[in-house]
Simulated assay, not measured.
Amino acid sequence: MVVRPPIKVLFLCTGNSARSVMAEALLNVLGEGRFQAFSAGSFPSGAVQPIAAELARAFDYAAPLRSKSWDEFAGPHAPAIDIVITVCDNAAGEVCPIWPGQPVSAHWGVPDPAGVQGSDAQRRSAFQSAWAMLRQRIEQLLALPLETLDRTALQQALRDIGKVESA
């Protein structure tokens, strides 16, 4: 039996406070060791949104979540990333650093729950909707036949996942 190293996925968002950290938690749990997920932001807020952290904990994600700069993943000592996925439209339009490992990339736009104004129930609903959309897309990623996809096919499959609307 050949033991393969986990596929390293970096989720990017501008503030790295909600969508990207939720995606990190989801993939690390659902990926069951096949994947190692990280998250970062181009202009990190410095804090994880409390509702995002609460959803991750309720999903049995025990690792500490923190808002961090994408610079942590661009330096010489950074892990070689296999896949980079932007989850906000602002980050998708920014000039990204050169990532070690020459990863494939895709954009999975998800509405920003942190920007929702209103009651606590309305804000929680926005976070739960973003969580559900991210989970659906991550489950599609997990269903891909990664062993048989070449680089071009993987990139296209990842981009196609980002175009699917939530059910």
Rank of each mutant, 00 (worst) to 15 (best):
1 M>Q: 11
2 V>H: 11
3 V>C: 04
3 V>Y: 07
3 V>F: 04
5 P>N: 03
6 P>H: 04
10 L>W: 01
10 L>D: 01
11 F>C: 03
11 F>H: 03
15 G>N: 13
16 N>K: 15
17 S>D: 04
18 A>K: 06
18 A>E: 04
18 A>I: 08
18 A>R: 11
20 S>K: 09
21 V>P: 00
22 M>E: 01
22 M>W: 10
25 A>K: 11
25 A>W: 07
25 A>Q: 01
25 A>S: 11
27 L>C: 08
27 L>S: 04
29 V>W: 00
30 L>C: 14
31 G>C: 07
31 G>D: 03
32 E>C: 11
32 E>R: 10
33 G>K: 00
33 G>A: 06
33 G>E: 02
36 Q>R: 15
36 Q>G: 06
38 F>G: 09
39 S>I: 12
39 S>G: 00
40 A>P: 12
40 A>C: 08
41 G>I: 09
44 P>Y: 06
44 P>G: 04
45 S>G: 12
45 S>K: 14
46 G>H: 11
46 G>T: 10
46 G>W: 00
48 V>T: 02
49 Q>R: 15
53 A>L: 13
54 E>H: 12
57 R>M: 00
57 R>F: 02
58 A>Y: 07
59 F>L: 14
59 F>G: 02
61 Y>M: 01
64 P>K: 12
64 P>A: 07
64 P>F: 02
66 R>A: 14
71 D>F: 00
71 D>N: 14
76 P>S: 15
78 A>E: 09
79 P>F: 10
79 P>R: 01
82 D>V: 02
82 D>G: 03
82 D>W: 05
82 D>Q: 07
83 I>T: 02
83 I>K: 02
83 I>A: 03
85 I>G: 02
86 T>Y: 09
86 T>E: 07
89 D>L: 06
90 N>I: 14
90 N>E: 11
91 A>S: 13
94 E>L: 13
95 V>S: 14
95 V>F: 04
96 C>V: 05
97 P>A: 11
97 P>M: 06
98 I>M: 07
98 I>T: 12
98 I>P: 05
101 G>H: 08
101 G>R: 02
102 Q>A: 15
103 P>H: 09
104 V>D: 08
106 A>R: 12
106 A>M: 02
108 W>P: 12
108 W>K: 10
110 V>D: 11
111 P>H: 08
111 P>N: 05
112 D>A: 08
113 P>Y: 07
113 P>A: 09
113 P>W: 12
114 A>H: 05
116 V>L: 09
116 V>M: 13
117 Q>N: 12
117 Q>S: 15
118 G>E: 03
121 A>S: 13
121 A>W: 05
124 R>L: 06
125 S>D: 11
127 F>N: 10
127 F>Q: 01
128 Q>K: 13
128 Q>D: 10
129 S>F: 05
129 S>V: 11
130 A>E: 00
130 A>F: 01
132 A>C: 03
134 L>A: 07
134 L>S: 06
137 R>S: 09
138 I>F: 11
146 L>Q: 03
146 L>C: 05
148 T>R: 15
148 T>E: 15
149 L>T: 03
150 D>F: 01
151 R>T: 08
151 R>V: 01
152 T>F: 12
152 T>N: 14
153 A>D: 14
154 L>H: 01
154 L>C: 10
154 L>W: 03
155 Q>R: 13
155 Q>W: 00
157 A>V: 04
158 L>S: 08
159 R>K: 15
161 I>N: 07
163 K>W: 02
164 V>A: 04
166 S>T: 15
167 A>F: 12
167 A>V: 13
